[in-house]
Design a protein around this nucleic acid. Structure first.
Lengths: 167, 167
DNA sequence: TGCGGTGTTCATTTTAGTTTGAACAACCTG
DNA sequence: CAGGTTGTTCAAACTAAAATGAACACCGCA
């Protein structure tokens, strides 16, 4: 009920809101949930490391979201923990080197799909070998060969990507 | 009510189902809707060009989905229309050159985001210039500079990507 | 101009995916 | 080891995005 009088102590300032919005958009392109963008965005523009509670308080998201979001960001190597001295609580800082961010994304989100793609193609090849009609079998083989070449290209491109982004 | 006796004339065979599932997964990684994967997948494994009605019938999707899906696939350069002779109806074939597919995706889905990113960063820079505290302003400037460098890297990488995939 | 066939649009429904929050596990700390 | 703090889990609620399908626009043809 103070709300009407006192502005909220924790609300984001305009710049922070703009940066958070920027990253919310950014992560959507990558297919990641909004909360990931909010969390990373606020860390990115904060001069000090923030705790889970800070994130909950300032972004007005649930503890659950913050916890899960941080877990994903950690797995991507996009945030690191800083245990502040005698502090019990964990604080988080963003990784801001593109190399690291891209590397984590490729490792965690892209490579697994390439791998599962390979095995699915193997199963496809097996299914196709049972086709009776030779003409159909031939056509399908060619298409599967095409899929394999796509995957090979992907495998070749990723390292180059990482190299180019690591500057 | 024939359903119990007669199998459905139009249902996908096991190979087709497998290929469609493969592409459904594939497009999800790219952040595109499931129907896009279904449509492209069926075209990919079909020996003949298919009409919109064929897709509706065989994939059991609505005309609306098929129409919108084809529109997106056309905009990506992932399908081409073949107007069969005196036929009134339009038939569709998949583009299967990775170069073309990647090029279309980059052009339609990635570049626009890079562009809008640039303009958002400009607005950020404007906001940041109004910060009073010099130390804070300095810090924010550095972070914004970092964002700019990311965008520059992205701009440099895309052409290389396209080149590498075009083989 | 009216008719049959083909494809598009868009308000509504449905679905998949995200967020919430209450319960609880882990962990200090006195 | 009791009490308090921090962080995690997961079923349920919610939301954003996709699919549906009925209305409609378009087009060639008689």
């Amino acid at each position: 009920m103070d709300d009407l009088l006192a502005g909220d102590q924790h609300a984001l300032d305009p710049l922070e809101r703009q940066v958070v919005a920027f990253f919310v958009d950014g992560v959507r392109v990558l297919g990641l949930p909004r909360s990931i963008g909010e969390i990373y965005g606020l860390l990115f523009i904060s001069q000090t490391a923030l705790s889970l509670d800070d994130l909950v308080l300032r972004l007005r998201i649930s503890k659950g979201s913050a916890s899960q979001g941080l877990r994903l960001l950690k797995s991507l190597g996009a945030v690191r923990e800083t245990r502040g001295g005698a502090e019990r609580r964990t604080y988080y800082e963003p990784a801001i080197e593109l190399k690291r961010l891209a590397g984590g994304f490729i490792r965690e989100q892209i490579r697994p799909h390439l791998e599962s793609g390979k095995s699915k193609i193997n199963r496809l090849a097996k299914t196709s070998s049972e086709i009776d009609d030779p003409e159909r079998r031939q056509f399908v083989s060619e298409r599967i060969e095409r899929l394999e070449s796509w995957i090979r290209s992907g495998g070749r491109v990723l390292p180059v990507l990482q190299k180019l982004l690591g500057q």
